[in-house]
Design a protein around this nucleic acid. Structure first.
Lengths: 352, 352
DNA sequence: GTTTATTTTGGGAGCGCTCTCATAGGAGGA
DNA sequence: TCCTCCTATGAGAGCGCTCCCAAAATAAAC
């Protein structure tokens, strides 16, 4: 423990430089020498000192992953673990390390100073940024490598990966239209955040394509939670919709409750489509038709974009939007065997 | 961008050493000089280079958090996010950074080499180790700072934080005994992992204290999953128990299904207590009495132990066991208003 | 067998910081 | 007023690596 390059060099009877070349797989070392050096390295269990290397190369091979305001959402939402897995897998493949920061807004500034400007990390990936995330803006303006998971409209030059929320909203609404529904209401997400805005935009686009102009009373705003969906749905009921597109599964669940309380049937009286495909969606009554997003991929691609900046020096903003997928279950009325998958009590494994 | 100590020194008209003292809050700098230096630092936005500092101090202020085999469990289990939050909060308070590694067994070795022996991290916290985790053992044997979240019986000197699984099992079982149940069966967790072993031990201890010696047919082993609980319960039914202690909530849910299929009522015919207090436990029918663990604290304390090794050079193994808490709902029969909390359909927010 | 080109190796100079030690001022005591 | 004792500051030597450049060894060309 605690060997240095110098000592390995001495043991192998070569110079420091040669050992350095061996570790870094530089071609111009005689195979015989290379072998000898490796043997010594393995023998004594030598491992180059990370800080020394980082200092000399001016690279740390560490990527910061920032989850602002993680505290409430990090729990319930399967979103974060999935993105994180994607990021982690992709980084590991490329021999990078992942520095995780669950930050409150006050801590963000401090983090930024220490980690990014102090070159502790080579770049950062910010997940689910507020629409005006100062971290992203600051990093971007100083030319430090940053990728946003979720589009970042404030600063058009910021690279991001996002899911096609407009497309997802359109797909969900279009599906209801094709099933013959015409009075399609929506429970939109908060209009302060990109997913909320985009999914509503998709809803509008789909209706527009069918020549329908939704009146204001078809649109209610929720906050992505179950209660929010419930409250919004009660308001929408007076418009007598025959279908609802909810911008999150949780809101869809709340909406289903309100619909049932009003004595209406799902999907016969009101069809419903959610968004996210959370695990729960398979176990609602009836199972929820919903929009699935490639969340794991989101993480992987964020890494790919960041490393292309880091290693190939890509300068122009790269903006990737991934397509979504419609998962058809019974709540939209497209399936015959409605109720067949209905669970007894709450259940998570899906085996019953 | 890219200022060095030297340059700040020149700008402030002092030496490098003095600037270094200022940043490190060394007392012996004249207040007037200190102020002048700080002003320059703020003005140019200077930030010390992390790698240079790490090299000189031989400390990185980074702690590695290793979650082996994260892939399947990281999702469903609220355990990991909670521990992670505890760790993250505690580290942030002490100005440490968190390096997260979601590792497959093959990657563990590589990680160990690079991160720990290369001094990329000052120490590691391993969550939910396999009972024979090689990472922990290797680190421990080389004297590198490692804390296990969950006890590590293989190597008695390893420091760990754990939850009192024996106490939790005893508490759950004792509760059923106090409610008058006498034929108490258990669905134990896998006997290859500490929580499984310990909770069963607690069950035994509680019965022993009441002079009851559970026959083998009262004990079935599950794998912590819902199916596992279902299968185990079907086996147990032939022993005609009047209560069951399931070593996980998921198994309890499976057991409830089996009980109901057998035409028996909960809690009248068979009372049931689970373990973990997962979110779902509030929404089963009837709501599940269960054992809650201080998971967030687990993370915080892991950090405290690690830093006491790192900063105060604590050498002797520190082993902390946290108490659990019994959350009484209707499934054990202790509550009158059974069914009052019963949800309609699936629901997560608990507001209905 | 030279000369020239090429590959392999070694030495030196950093990377940007900390930390010990020596020195220059000042304060305090006689 | 002089000497002693602190306190504030500066200089220098690393920390352990990479990378450039020149030297040595080898191969190729004449």
């Amino acid at each position: 423990m605690g060997y240095t390059l110098e000592e390995i060099a001495r043991l192998a009877g070569v110079s420091r430089s040669t050992v350095s070349r061996v570790i870094n797989h530089h071609p111009s070392v005689r195979p015989e020498v290379r072998e000898r050096v490796w043997r010594i390295i393995r023998e004594v269990g030598y491992q180059p000192h990370a800080a020394a290397r980082n200092l000399a190369t001016r690279r740390s091979r560490i990527v910061g992953v920032v989850i602002p305001e993680a505290l409430p959402k990090f729990f319930s939402d399967p979103y974060f673990p999935a993105v994180l897995r994607g990021i982690s897998d992709a980084l590991t493949e490329r021999s990078y390390h992942l520095m995780l920061s669950l930050l409150s807004p006050q801590q963000e500034e401090d983090f930024y100073q220490r980690a990014l400007r102090g070159r502790l990390v080579d770049g950062i990936i910010v997940i689910s940024a507020q629409i005006t995330d100062p971290l992203i803006r600051q990093a971007y303006q100083e030319g430090l490598p940053v990728i946003s998971v979720g589009r970042y409209p404030q600063e058009p030059g910021v690279s991001y990966v996002d899911v096609d929320n407009v497309g997802g909203g359109r797909m969900a609404t279009d599906h209801l239209l094709r099933l013959g529904r015409r009075r399609i209401a929506t429970i939109a997400g908060p209009q302060t955040r990109a997913p909320g805005i985009d999914r509503l935009e998709g809803y509008r686009a789909a209706l527009r394509a069918w020549g329908i102009d939704p009146p204001p009373e078809w649109i209610a705003e929720g906050d992505f939670t179950e209660i929010g969906g419930y409250v919004a749905m009660r308001r929408l009921l007076s418009a007598r919709p025959d279908a609802v597109f909810a911008a999150s599964d949780l809101m869809a669940v709340g909406a289903m409750k309100a619909i049932r309380e009003a004595g209406l049937r799902i999907p016969e009286d009101i069809a419903i489509v959610g968004y996210d495909d959370v695990e729960l969606a398979r176990f609602t009554d009836p199972p929820l038709t919903t929009v699935r997003q490639p969340i794991y991929e989101l993480g992987r691609i964020a890494v790919r974009l960041l490393l292309s900046q880091l290693e190939e020096g890509a300068r122009e903003p790269q903006q990737v939007v991934l397509p979504t997928e419609l998962v058809i279950r019974a709540s939209c009325g497209a399936l015959q065997e409605r109720g067949a998958l209905e669970p007894r009590g709450a259940s998570l494994s899906g085996w019953d």
